[in-house]
Amino acid sequence: MQTESLHRYHALNRRRVLLVAGMLAVALLAVVADLMTGPAGLPLAETLGALTGWGEVARSAEVIVWQVRLPVAIMALLVGAALALAGAEMQTVLENPLAEPFTLGVSASAALGAATAIVLGLSLPGLPPVWSVSANAFLFALGALALLQLMGRLRGGGPEVLILCGIALNFTAGAFLSLLQFVASADALQQLVFWTMGSLAAASWPGVTVLAVVLAVTAPFSLKAAWQLTALRLGEEQARSFGVDVARLRRWSLLRVSLLAASAVSMVGVIGFVGLAGPHIARMLLGEDHRFFLPGSLLTGAVVMSLASLVSKTVVPGVLLPVGLVTSLIGLPIFFSLILRGRGR
């Protein structure tokens, strides 16, 4: 009996490893599909040829793939991965299945930061003008999360306090954003509205590199804390009695979340619901052993975002929809089903 249960447990874990590997494969396929779509359709052979350098490939195809589509496709992958990983950690450390960067005001703050650059022309000294929007968005998003942590700490750091402060922050940033929109010129207003809809169109290799580095630095620490995060799912008191320094875990986790969310949102604008949908889908497929749940969330986010990028190019022929709109439209039903399921329990 004992060995049988253990065998079944190990078999389950092997299946989960396979599932995570499968998700990685799907993410790569989604990138290839993303690369193949665009105003100039490229067949699979040519896309792969341009990517790998094998066979005879037209120079134009190479330029389209490497300079135009690949940064966008990789950016989609990384943004999805970063937001979903941030969402997964946030949901665990704040003990709330609806927590994610978008619902807790990070995106709204980033938008406000972007507005200070677009509308007011504020920029960090010495920074190339191309980067001013991203830099301000990043600083505001990071500042929002720092403020959240600070308010939480003042009131004893409970997750409820953090969540309520996050919601208040969301509305505050939204109000200031409206104010800036009110005073903005027509040009700036249009630019700002586009930014808040989230777009991959401006993706560039330097941006991709920045986000990749942030992800590569934070993700290993997330995984290292996997058992502690799993223990936290059994309740804060329990986790503490298991030897987890919960205050410290929460602090470091929220720092990782801040970096991930702020850099992702600052690159592409407001992207809703990936941070919610990614972890939710991963939880249904893999459970909440965070050794599988965290990488699963990351990959699910990457896949969802890649597919959203694909959809944004194909749903209206010849028109590139803002990808943030697409993710919100996909994410909303999931959001509602989550709430309704929670009710039924």
């Binding site: 249960s5 447990y9 299945p97 058992w227 502690q228 799993t230 223990a231 799912r233 059994l234 309740g235 329990q238 986790a239 298991f242 030897g243 987890v244 939880r283 459970g287 909440e288 052993d289």
Partner: peptide
């Protein structure tokens, strides 16, 4: 024990030791 975790009994007890 609080509810809501998508964990099995065995996983929760392993976490109690591994954390």
């Amino acid at each position: 024990l609080p509810s809501g975790a998508a964990l099995s009994v065995l996983e929760s007890v392993i976490a109690a030791r591994s954390a």
